[in-house]
């Protein structure tokens, strides 16, 4: 348990004076009801030796006063902001950004990067405490946002439902969605989504980092936690484009366009085979160009 002091000594002194003032007011407030009795003879003798502590006798068993003092005590305690500081998810809100782009299907993690990401996301969900809410955003080149929920079961279901895609990685949309939820005035969500109140949140990003840097993005209330998946040294090549087109000038000819990208750190030679009606076509004539991707974006944040 640790405390965060939110008041200056002067303010504490002021707060400490409040209970004294309350007790004092009780004495000022005390208005005795007059009651005529046959004789105060016995009463005088009764209170004779209680006079010394009558001041405190007066306050004893005064429930209202005790409640007020208790309230002040609780207020002071609240100003100390008590809490437990833990390594687990103690935030109120968590946004789980799960990358399901094509590169996440790599199997350098077991069984695959996406499965590993899902597993870690589930671990975060398991650490959630009652009252905590979380949301799952799966992203590749587009983001699929869901609403906040406190139900772990729903979250588990949503995480389990994430399937690998053959898409490229573009984190910007997902980040914008998350930032819109966390920062006021940035809400850019589709109409059918529940727009929650903009509140600070922890942003968990489960990704292999295969996306370009986002220099113009402001996190605002988001506190990001990047969970890297996969090895940066892993050979990773992808068929990033494949299109077959009939040329207008020569309608009897088909033109195929294949784009192969290498996300690995080293140049590589890739053999590409194109089958047409189960016959391997000879590509050597028209192709053979080798290229390497511009760079491996390792640190998106």
């Amino acid at each position: 348990m640790n405390f965060i002091n939110t008041l200056t000594p002067g303010q504490w002194a002021l707060l400490g004076a409040v209970p004294l003032a309350v007790v004092l007011l009780y004495f000022l407030k005390l208005r005795r009801q007059r009651q005529e009795v046959p004789s105060t003879y016995l009463w005088r003798r009764t209170i004779e030796d209680l006079h010394v502590n009558s001041l405190w006798q007066r306050l004893r068993r005064n429930l209202l006063l005790f409640l007020q003092l208790l309230l002040l005590l609780l207020l002071a305690l609240a100003l100390l902001r008590p809490g437990w500081r833990g390594a687990d998810v103690a935030d109120q809100r968590a946004i789980l950004l799960i990358d399901n782009s094509a590169s996440m299907s790599a199997t350098d993690e077991t069984p695959s990067r996406l499965e590993q990401a899902k597993r870690r996301a589930l671990a975060v969900v398991e650490q959630m405490q009652s009252g905590d809410v979380a949301m799952v955003i799966e992203f590749s080149d587009a983001a699929r946002t869901q609403s906040y929920t406190a139900s772990r079961r729903t979250l588990r279901g949503r995480i389990d439902a994430i399937r690998p895609t053959q898409r490229a990685t573009d984190i910007r949309e997902a980040l914008r969605a998350a930032a819109g939820l966390a920062n006021p005035g940035l809400t850019r969500l589709a109409d059918n989504q529940i727009v929650d109140e903009a509140l600070p949140a922890t942003l968990f990003i489960f990704s292999d980092g295969g996306f370009p840097a986002v220099p113009d993005f402001a996190l605002g209330n988001l506190s990001p936690v990047f969970v890297p998946l996969g090895e940066t040294t892993t050979e990773n090549r992808a068929l990033t484009a494949f299109a077959v087109d009939r040329q207008a000038a020569q309608p009897d000819r088909l033109q195929a366009f294949v784009s192969v990208a290498n996300f690995g750190p080293r140049p590589a030679t890739v053999q590409v085979e194109l089958f047409f009606n189960q016959q391997s076509l000879d590509l050597a004539r028209s192709c053979g160009q080798r290229w390497t991707p511009s760079r491996w974006a390792t640190s998106p944040m």
Partner: peptide, 28 residues
């Protein structure tokens, strides 16, 4: 909280009735 007034000499006794005080009264 009462201010007991003696009906004969108008003397007052300030008392705050509580269980211990009543016990004390019984004793007296």
């Amino acid at each position: 909280d009462l201010r007991l007034v003696d009906c004969e000499d108008r003397a007052v006794a300030d008392v705050t009735i509580s269980r211990p005080l009543l016990d004390r009264y019984q004793q007296t």
